[in-house]
Design a binder for these strands. Structure first.
Lengths: 337, 337
DNA sequence: GTGCGCTTTGGGAGCGCTCCCACTGGAAGC
DNA sequence: GCTTCCAGTGGGAGCGCTCCCAAAGCGCAC
């Protein structure tokens, strides 16, 4: 038997009775609403203390039509993409901002079909006051669902093929451009690219940034060589690159994991980093600092991303109409380039 | 203006009316309860489809006194401890298990005072059907709150100084013992230890396992040298160790981050791993595999930890009385030892 | 003394669902 | 023929809160 409740929860009625006031007055006192005399307010406070009263959030939610919770949905068929520390840091930021607005955080990993179904239900049933949506693939059904949702939706990053009404993103194009320009400024001329999945907007935008920088420097951009954001795929891509273009002297990888994989392959091929091949990553996760050599990479404000998504959502919930936000990146120069 | 709702949500009453039945019958049909004729059941289903009806979870929660959500609380004064990929993987496991039971996951980072206060309110107000509690420090006020909570509580790991009624833990003592025995079996005799925080039960248990193994092998255990589970602290501890005991030939670090720090310090001191100093970690996070050399470490089933916590909680919510669980660890032997 | 406007108060009607219970009518048992 | 039973049904009373609104109380200008 689980914790036979010591005594039933006291209700607002009981508080009111004990304080010698009506339920209305007690409610107002509790919510710091006006139109309550000082004496009654204090009487209510006393009764609350004596009874150990805590308002029932469900009842309040039913009456106010506000659940007091915001959901963060992380999409993707593979649940382990969530193991990427990236999301953990987004959550830290979002959690802090939601705390300030007194909203709870519901986390939905929409990996399995079942999970996806539950997200759809959440969206349709107003099981939360608003939703933050992340990591959407091309044609993700969640995008359509979000359109039809009966609550505010903020996107983290932009989905492929559509520009949502409200989103927070990082400057993927600018970051990739800066990374590539850095390689060029070091005198590298045969600068290759290891793209992320090109069915994500981040993957595409980072390739665009690379391409812009190469063209701007009068160099030939490499065609997109696609990885899937894992270390393994970075290592494989680098191997292919060395085989096909032995003279490559710089590599921009669309994230740190792949950059670390590339680092490993370069070393195993007997070449030095950065002397023979300079490598730049993207993200600036912990792994960039402990890589050998430490990875030059595009720093993105991950916690700020979460924080700003949450703030935007709070604004929407409060009936405001915030404008989309693109957060700046900056290059963290370390030993690898 | 945020999304002027296209039309008000249809309610169960409207469904019932459209289907030509009473609200009771509609409710029963919706919940697959008995005592509904086939014809009416189908009529209700049709009405649901036509109206695009979705039950209001809040109203249901109020009536059933079940919120349909479980909370995962991660304690700790520093919110960034949550950035440890460890928690992300716990969440993946917990989320999957909760999905199966149709429970939502609420995530509470009880870092700030404000966050802690909100957790307390959650615990006292039955804002969730149950709670999973992790990463508790000595004297964490959350432990007391959990005792007084009006809902089931499952601990992840055991808090210092008390054995909760329900918990899931990994075999910290056994894992640490096995790690140390491995070092001894390699012929190492001066095997030192870099402990984790000794105000956590995991930190203490891992030291106990180390000590047991040393004594069992007839060797002198080193006194506890405490780190705080970060790479930096591991590096510092290792430096101190080399200064004081230049002849140390093996190190057991209580987690991977500290082991990686130790690795770095050993190399910077001009010694070789594992030839001069063999190093073993604990956790088997991604970092263990990409470390140089790859880290021999105690693998713990992190996702299973989350999954089992969630399952235990579900059992409690369903009125059962599950028994505490200690999950086994195993040594993942790589190049560092 | 009357009327106006203000704050303070409590009654009551929801919010949308579940679930107890009383009722119906037809099948089964005697 | 009667009672007994039970699947099927709908009415209605909650769950615990918010919030509208009418009424009461009171000071103050006229």
């Amino acid at each position: 038997m689980a914790e036979a409740a010591p005594r039933r929860h006291p209700t607002l009625d009981e508080v009111a009775e004990r304080a010698g006031v009506s339920r209305s007055v007690a409610s107002r006192a509790l919510n710091n609403a006006p139109h309550v005399s000082r004496a009654k307010r204090e009487a209510v406070e006393r009764a609350v203390r004596q009874l150990g009263y805590v308002p029932n959030p469900t009842a309040r939610a039913l009456a106010t039509r506000q659940t007091g919770a915001a959901a963060l949905v992380v999409s993707g068929e593979d649940p382990s993409i969530f193991a990427d520390p990236f999301f953990a840091r987004v959550i830290v930021g979002a959690s802090a901002a939601l705390d300030e607005a007194d909203l709870h955080l519901m986390l939905c990993l929409a990996a399995s079909d079942r999970g996806r179904k539950r997200v759809e239900e959440l969206l349709r049933s107003r099981g939360a006051d608003g939703v933050m949506l992340m990591a959407l693939r091309e044609d993700d059904p969640l995008v359509r669902m979000a359109d039809e949702a009966r609550m505010p939706v903020v996107f983290g990053g932009r989905p492929v093929g559509s520009v949502p009404r409200w989103y927070v993103d990082v400057d993927n194009v600018g970051g990739a451009r800066e990374a590539t320009e850095h390689l060029v400024s070091l005198g590298r001329r045969r600068v290759a690219v290891i793209c992320g999945r090109l069915d994500t907007e981040a993957g595409r935008a980072r390739y665009r940034g690379y391409r812009d920088a190469m063209l701007g420097a009068g160099l030939d951009p490499f065609p997109p060589l696609e990885g899937d954001f894992t270390e393994r795929s970075g290592a494989a891509a680098m191997a292919a690159l060395l085989a096909e273009h032995p003279d490559v002297d710089g590599v921009f990888a669309a994230n740190d994991n792949m950059a670390v994989g590339a680092l490993r392959t370069v070393r195993e091929a007997g070449r030095r980093v950065p002397a023979d091949v300079a490598v730049v990553g993207f993200d600036d996760l912990t792994v960039a600092q402990i890589a050998d050599p430490p990875l030059t990479t595009v720093h993105q404000p991950v916690e700020a991303l979460g924080r700003e998504m949450a703030r935007m959502l709070v604004a929407l919930v409060n009936g405001q109409d915030p404008t989309p936000l693109v957060l700046p990146t900056r290059l963290a120069v370390r030993a690898s380039a």
